[in-house]
Amino acid sequence: MTNINTKKQYTIGVDIGGTKMTAVLFDGIKVLADYALATPKDTLEHFMIMLNALIEPLLAKAKQSKAEIKGIGVGLAAILDYQERKILTAPNLPLLDGQKIPGQMEAKLGLKIKLDNDANCFTRAEAKIGAGKKYQNIFGLTIGTGIGGAWWFNNEIYLGAHGGAGEPGWLVIDFLNGVRLEEAYHKLAQNNPASLAEEAYRGDILAEKAYQEFGYYLGVSLANIVNIVDPEVIVVGGSVISSGDLFLSKTKKAMRTYIKSAAAKKIKIVKGSLGDQAGAIGAAMLFS
């Protein structure tokens, strides 16, 4: 049977994490191929070399399939200037601060590049084809190296007037000492949530208590978000969600306590369904 579309169109999505970079080849519906490498943190030159090495196998796969690449979407944990296509601050990768990565990539690869916050990418993917696809109003939350978030409303990510919307990690949870949610998270997890989770699963009381305390702070923060934007559902993801049974029940209880609307108290917190590819898929969707 002859295919009417003589030239297939794919996109590539890249998720730059604090420890790992993931890339996917995406046809608009499913992932056709994926690749991952460790995230370099030493020099910008090394970072760009490895970013290119991450993308090259997927470009080769597309060429082999006689497909055209519409563009490459890149997501990372950073505050961005969307007009200038510039990374203002990347807390986990300070070597990228002030860099215009899309322009550098376009010069190297000859393809269109779009840049977005990683939590925006996670939320976009889960809203369109993941755990949030039945809903119109979704708040996405990622917990990994840091804490990120995004609000999906009217079929798009709401960026706010200055591009700074959706930063739950900056919610203040201790007004006396000015402690933000992300700061409390790092302090409680001692900057190693995976190790703390192992200790908690082994029955370490202090580790269990730390996760419960974080769960409470997270619940209070989500209640604040619900009281402002009233989403239909909250979708959570990131590496720490695999340990969600250590804190999510506490989170749900605290959230319900501090939500004003009786109807909104029923809002569900659900785990994302796309796994660790969600961010890269959401980045690929920047061209869909």
Score class of each variant (00 low, 15 high):
I4F: 15
I4M: 14
I4S: 14
I4P: 15
T6M: 15
K8I: 13
Y10R: 08
T11C: 15
I12H: 06
D15W: 07
I16C: 09
T19H: 07
T19E: 05
M21P: 06
M21F: 06
T22Q: 12
F26H: 08
D27Q: 07
G28W: 07
V31A: 04
L32R: 06
L32G: 09
D34V: 09
D34C: 12
Y35N: 14
A36D: 15
A36E: 15
P40W: 11
D42P: 03
L44M: 11
L44F: 15
E45G: 09
H46V: 15
A53N: 15
I55E: 10
P57W: 04
L58K: 11
L59F: 06
A60W: 07
A60L: 15
A67L: 06
E68D: 14
I69H: 03
K70H: 08
V74Q: 05
V74Y: 05
V74D: 05
A78K: 07
I79D: 00
L80K: 04
L80V: 06
Y82D: 11
Q83W: 09
E84V: 12
E84P: 07
R85F: 13
L93W: 08
P94C: 10
L95K: 08
K100G: 12
I101S: 04
M105V: 08
M105C: 07
A107H: 10
K112Q: 11
I113S: 01
K114D: 09
D116Q: 08
A119R: 00
A119F: 01
N120F: 02
T123F: 05
A125M: 06
K128T: 00
A131N: 01
K133N: 09
K133E: 09
K134T: 08
N137C: 11
N137T: 11
G140E: 08
I143K: 00
G148V: 10
A150T: 05
W152G: 03
W152N: 03
F153D: 08
N154V: 06
N154F: 10
E156K: 13
E156Y: 03
I157M: 03
L159A: 12
A161E: 14
H162P: 04
A165Q: 03
P168V: 04
D174N: 14
V179Y: 03
V179G: 01
R180W: 09
L181K: 01
E182Q: 11
E183T: 15
K187T: 12
L188W: 04
Q190Y: 00
P193N: 05
A197R: 00
A197G: 06
E198G: 00
E199W: 00
R202C: 09
G203K: 03
I205K: 12
L206P: 00
A207I: 02
K209R: 10
Y211V: 01
Q212Y: 01
E213W: 02
F214C: 04
G215E: 01
Y216R: 08
Y217C: 04
S221H: 04
L222W: 02
N224K: 10
N224W: 05
I225T: 07
I228D: 05
D230P: 05
P231E: 07
E232Y: 06
V233H: 03
V233P: 05
V235P: 01
V235W: 02
S239M: 07
D245N: 14
S249H: 13
T251C: 10
K253M: 13
K253E: 15
T257P: 01
Y258G: 01
I259N: 02
I259A: 06
A262N: 12
A263N: 11
I269C: 03
G272L: 04
S273A: 15
I281R: 09
G282S: 10
